[in-house]
Design a protein around this nucleic acid. Structure first.
Lengths: 341, 341
DNA sequence: GCCAAAACTTATCGCGCGTAAAACTTTTAT
DNA sequence: ATAAAAGTTTTACGCGCGATAAGTTTTGGC
């Protein structure tokens, strides 16, 4: 490392023997300068650990390399996992992702979008809160900043939407459950925060009717994002009231199922497919912890990888290329058979 | 909203009838200007939704209002939860937190610290990877940027360290387990990524010896942050090899315990305190999901709230006030009795 | 070797705001 | 009432880099 500290691009240009505009060009795109020039700069870069001032850069650039990633609830490992994938894809594409969580609070989501605006991001990947989102705030944000929605879509907002084919999820597992035992009842929250829940219910109803069974939907009270606790407490209430007409319960998502399993345990109900079991429970999502419940949860896996990859791809295509019409991409679920059903 | 769009502070100062330097001062600290002036500015602020350019601000400020929050593994809800608390405390204190996860990768941790440096943060709250961290990188970062370490400390790096009194955790639950049944064996990873594990082992040994029992430590193979899977697979191996001398297993942390519970389930071992149970299992952390395992996990609760609050407090005191000597603050664990032990 | 294209240099401006000094005005204390 | 203190305005400069125009050098194809 050189003795003298480099304070700005001017000084760095001097020690590397290249003019400042060319150095600037190099940092904008290393391939845009001659090989011999590039080598000189990179040699100097090793001797003096100079890095351009990020604030000065972004002040004048029309397009920063910032990308915002917003998820509704980071304490849910599902979103943590998907955020991880997205972050990595952004870095690989040469962007600087910044992660935000709305923590289930609509006001916070609005604040995040607001502060995101002032970061002049090249684009944003947004998984909205859903029903609770301030729709007009999201709408105006989308019209200002290139935004791809994922997980849960709002109308046809943004450049694109990437998510799961939720009706297919429910239909897939209803088919399986009916094939292997009694038809399932459907357990969900009465006022789900996520619009995907509605599509899953519809998928359930469709599949049941197609198979000639009467749908049985059990709705639980409770608000917010403490799904496990709601599943445990209100699912337990439903058990006590004998609201399930069959011995099989399909939960709207894995987190509810995890709580419901606890409710079953508290009532000493054996869950599973074995003959000594009294109830079967299934979920939807393939939550990272579902593998480790007791019994391990049978569920429908979201394609985390495909969703995050495609969301990032859509965003960058829209940023770098021409504007395409709004496109919705839904990925199929994959049945994951474990012991709970 | 006014008809004309405000492009910069100059224009905003004009429409509010205040000079630009005073407006600048207002945004730096609203209390620093006269009440009548403040009112004028805030009136204008409502008519025209002007916000200072964040890049231009940070370019010249010696101290930005940015705060970096770095956790080792965000897919672990424990860290997601603590990050949430910390973020909120930072916002309340008027700072802009930015969340980063090292995703268990030392190189990524280093990259994050690197890019954090160029953000000129006022301070950083860092939960290092631990054993895997590039110690010299963390050290040089701490000497450049005001940094408070939390969760796991490295030597006496940074302004302060805030965490849990890990030996006390183990001693607390060993006491409880011995009082209510057979003395526990200790289940841990052979090469834990987190240095807290060692302190917990030591606490276990101390407590066992003090109570006149011979410690029994079972170490599992496996690397990385997939604790549940390691607990399930390698814990299962230990069960098959009958490595546990008693019917009670204390896991080094809840995530291992969650996996170990699955291993028990797979072997049809009933876990709990009842007479028909063959094994007791306990964890440490009070992981958000421990309430919902089957059986619910008996554990020692980390004081999330106190840790995050105190870490933030330490950082801001150090930033805003005088420099104090390095201070280590450890919070006590709280016994959470559930059904697993 | 010639010549045009490509790459580079030099020079200069602008971005939006922080900051400082000096002169001025308002508030507070005596 | 008067002095002192505190707050405000004016003026001016600087931060580090993006961007551009005009002039110079290098490159590569013939």
């Amino acid at each position: 490392m050189g003795a003298t500290k480099i304070r700005n691009m001017e000084e760095f240009a001097a020690v590397s023997g290249i003019s400042r505009p060319t150095v600037s060009k190099y940092f904008h795109d290393p391939e845009s300068v001659r090989a011999s020039t590039r080598q000189k700069i990179e040699e100097a870069l090793e001797r003096y650990d100079y890095r351009p001032n990020i604030f000065a850069m972004n002040q004048n650039r029309k397009l920063t390399k910032n990308v915002g990633v917003v998820v509704p609830y980071l304490a849910d490992p599902f979103f943590a996992e998907i955020a991880r994938n997205i972050e990595q894809s952004c870095i690989d594409a040469g962007y600087r992702p910044t992660l935000y969580s709305s923590h289930g609070q609509p006001e916070l989501e609005k604040d995040i979008l607001d502060s995101l605006r002032s970061l002049k991001p090249a684009g944003v990947l947004l998984a909205p809160l859903g029903r609770a989102s301030d729709k007009s705030a999201v709408e105006s944000f989308c019209s200002d900043v290139p935004t791809v929605l994922f997980d849960s879509g709002i109308d046809r907002l943004g450049l694109a939407f990437v998510g799961s084919d939720n009706p297919q999820f429910a239909m897939l597992i209803v088919d399986y459950l009916c094939r292997t035992g009694e038809p399932p009842c459907f357990l969900e929250m009465r006022t789900p925060s996520n619009p995907n829940a509605n599509k899953r219910r519809q998928g359930y109803v469709t599949a049941m009717e197609r198979l000639g069974h009467e749908p049985c939907i059990v709705q639980m009270a409770g608000e917010g994002w403490d799904f496990e606790e709601i599943g445990r407490r209100e699912g337990g209430v439903a058990l006590d009231r004998r609201q399930f007409r069959t011995n099989t319960v399909l939960c709207s998502n894995d987190r509810l199922a995890i709580g419901f399993l606890t409710a079953c345990y508290e009532r000493r109900l054996r869950v599973g497919r074995d003959t000594d079991c009294t109830i079967r429970v299934a979920g939807q999502d393939d939550h990272p912890f579902s593998r480790f419940t007791c019994p391990p949860l049978t569920t429908v896996a979201q394609d985390y990888d495909a969703i995050s990859r495609h969301a990032v791809k859509s965003l960058f295509e829209a940023i770098e290329g021409d504007t395409k019409p709004h496109e919705t991409t839904l990925f199929q679920g994959r049945l994951v058979m474990r012991d709970s059903a």
